[in-house]
Design a protein around this nucleic acid. Structure first.
Lengths: 122, 122
DNA sequence: CCGGATCCGGTCTGATACTG
DNA sequence: CAGTATCAGACCGGATCCGG
């Protein structure tokens, strides 16, 4: 029997917590959007202008994904003309330790990084 | 002049710590390999068999990238036949807080995750 | 102008096959 | 065992276009 049964590798993607996180945020942009949300940005253009110009289709796609994942919430803050804003949900705010850990690592190991004006912790 | 000068967006990819980390590990597999290294795996086949079969070319590519980034070290543990092993460098071991933060988040927010037998903290 | 949607070329991913 | 080769298809990034 060459095919292994499910029991002999315990950390499939679906069961491993790290893999679960990476399935949601394992790309170059998602966590940068989360970072910008922590830094107080809320509107589409704010994200688009920050972080050396993320392509607009990628931005729209990621915002949708983050919204579906329940870490970002979209709401209208103006109806005429229609304008939206994006905010972190509690689930999204719980990602702060991940960003902080990354920031610490980069501060220690990557030369020339610029330190944040501290994430607004709430 | 349509092209904007470099000075008007402060958090370019090259200066933002988060972006720096994501440039190195911002994909679905790299941090899973790091995780496996923390869990004590050292050989190519160990990685290949873990994490629901990562394609072998991707694995080879990521190992090379991680090595070039200085977080993983490759050495021969046997010369006849030639066998290699991979180990975390101190720089790589400093990624533990990132993995822990992700694990915590998944444990809280993703259903059905299986908890690690605690990363071997050294 | 704002918030995307669409199109398109190019790069990267992933599955499998193959080699030393 | 430890990768490399190949190749189709997914995804990315840049530009442009469109409705409000």
């Amino acid at each position: 029997m060459i095919q292994s049964s499910a029991s002999d590798h315990d950390f499939e993607r679906s069961h491993c917590p790290i893999a679960n996180v990476l399935d949601l945020f394992g790309d170059k942009w998602s966590l940068l959007i989360i970072r910008d949300l922590f830094l107080g940005k809320t509107r589409y253009v704010d994200f688009a202008q920050s972080m050396e110009s993320i392509p607009s289709n990628i931005l729209a796609n990621r915002l949708k994904r983050l919204e579906m994942a329940g870490v970002v919430e979209k709401s209208a803050y103006c109806h005429k003309p229609l304008r939206h804003q994006y905010d972190l949900t509690p689930k999204g705010r719980d990602l702060l330790p991940v960003l902080e850990a990354m920031e610490q690592w980069a501060r220690k190991h990557v030369a020339g990084v610029r330190v944040f004006p501290r994430f607004s912790r709430e």
